[in-house]
Amino acid sequence: MRLITCLLLLLATAASVIAWSKEDYEIFDLVSALEAAEGKGIDFYKHVGVESSATTSEINKAYRKKSLELHPDKNPGVKNIQERFARLGVIAQILRSPEGRERYNFFYKNGVPKWRGTGYYYSRYRPTLSHTLIFLVLLSSAFHYLVLNLNYRKHQRRIDYFQNAARSSAGVLGVTSAQNGEKVTVPVQGRRRKVRVPMVEGSDQGGTLELVVVGNDVFIPHGDGTLEPISGLAHPPSISKTWFFSLILSLYVKGLDRLPPSVQDSIPAFLQPRESLGSDLLLDEEEEPEEGESALDTPTPSNRAARRLQGKKSRSTTAMPRDSPATTELESGDEDGKGEKKKKLAGGKAGAARRRKMGLKK
């Protein structure tokens, strides 16, 4: 109901704007100029010196008397007397005309509208080329920010789905509290579980994504043995990421690169561009699982190494098979001092079985 009321008001306003004529615009200009010159609240009748119900003869008599008061010959040296005298003549002409007076009486009773239409403002305040360009830049930047915000919300909902699905598959969520029976989050400290989540919610036909749940955090595994937090994939929008500010920043960085090193060193720290660092990725290390323990529930070692990678990492959308014989090469110093690289079998049931076989052979 409110929407229909707003639409009707909008249509009524648009109809009134379209109905305004050139004579209406002239009345608007006279009202604004009269209040600016004679004072706030001065209307045509007060300026001429008659009541709103005055006849035409009374208006003519009052006009002749008022014109003598404002005549430039009787007011030498008075500022803006010529404009005031000419304005009085135009106002008297509108009040003497039946059509003009009827139109002014409409605005006299209902008030002069504050918004007078784009045509009125455009005809009186024509924008220059610089004003037009600034308006277009601001408008396009606002739309770009809106698109960034919509994309961020969309990606955030997608990430929330993957996180909730991975935690549910790993048994982190869905535990019922004994006190009030509400769903609570129970983090599994120091344990890592690999799960597969459908790419499309409620359907396995679109493929699955392999994720790693460590405690209550969800990561994306990479082929080099690193884990990337899935929560960091959605970047919140900001004004600095819109196209205009990004263009200015890129040109500023290119301009700094062309300066001599001595000049670059003299630039203050807050004016120097910030280097974008890559995400902190946790090294995916696993210990040897004990007999009868699944490799998916292997405790995570406390001395997990962390390293910072610069640049962008290509994220794989398809996960490696659970029984894949892929290996990770780690530098290790042998007792004989050769420092050779040893291949460590990847996690999974197949990897655990191979390690048990190798232990029996030894």
Rank of each mutant, 00 (worst) to 15 (best):
T328N: 08
K46M: 13
G359Q: 14
A306D: 05
R124H: 15
W115I: 08
R167I: 04
G89N: 11
T128D: 15
L209Y: 04
T56C: 05
P273D: 00
D323T: 00
S203V: 02
P236F: 06
T300E: 10
H47F: 15
R157A: 14
V212H: 00
E26W: 04
S16M: 08
R356H: 10
M199D: 07
R116V: 06
R356D: 09
E58W: 03
G292T: 06
R196E: 12
L282N: 04
Q272I: 01
R157I: 05
K61A: 15
G49K: 06
P299C: 02
A92I: 06
K357A: 14
E35F: 00
S21Y: 04
E26R: 14
S250V: 07
T226C: 01
S266R: 13
G39M: 02
D334K: 10
L9Y: 07
K40P: 05
N110Y: 11
V78Y: 08
Y25E: 15
G171I: 00
T128Y: 06
Q264S: 02
N110W: 09
V147H: 11
L138M: 12
R355T: 02
S238K: 10
D160V: 05
P187N: 05
P261N: 09
R258K: 13
R2W: 08
G202S: 01
E293T: 10
E35Q: 15
G232P: 00
L251K: 00
L8R: 12
G207Y: 02
A305K: 15
K357T: 12
D217G: 02
G171W: 01
F245H: 07
Y63P: 05
Y104Q: 02
K74F: 14
A36M: 09
K313Y: 03
V78D: 07
A19G: 08
V147P: 01
G100Q: 04
L330G: 05
C6L: 12
D334F: 08
R258E: 06
H144C: 11
N105H: 09
P299A: 07
N216E: 14
P321Q: 03
I91T: 03
S246G: 08
E51C: 03
F219M: 08
I59Y: 03
I248W: 03
S16A: 14
K79L: 08
T317I: 02
L34N: 11
L146Y: 12
A269W: 05
P237C: 06
A19L: 08
A12W: 06
A346Q: 09
A234T: 02
G39F: 02
A350L: 15
F270K: 07
L88F: 04
A15R: 09
E331G: 06
S246P: 01
D257A: 14
L227V: 03
S332M: 10
A326C: 03
D29T: 12
R258S: 11
G347H: 09
S231C: 03
K109N: 10
T327K: 13
F270D: 08
T185S: 10
L88V: 03
L249R: 13
G207M: 00
V175K: 14
V197Y: 01
V48P: 06
P261W: 07
S246I: 01
A295H: 05
V112S: 03
E287P: 07
D204H: 05
D24P: 04
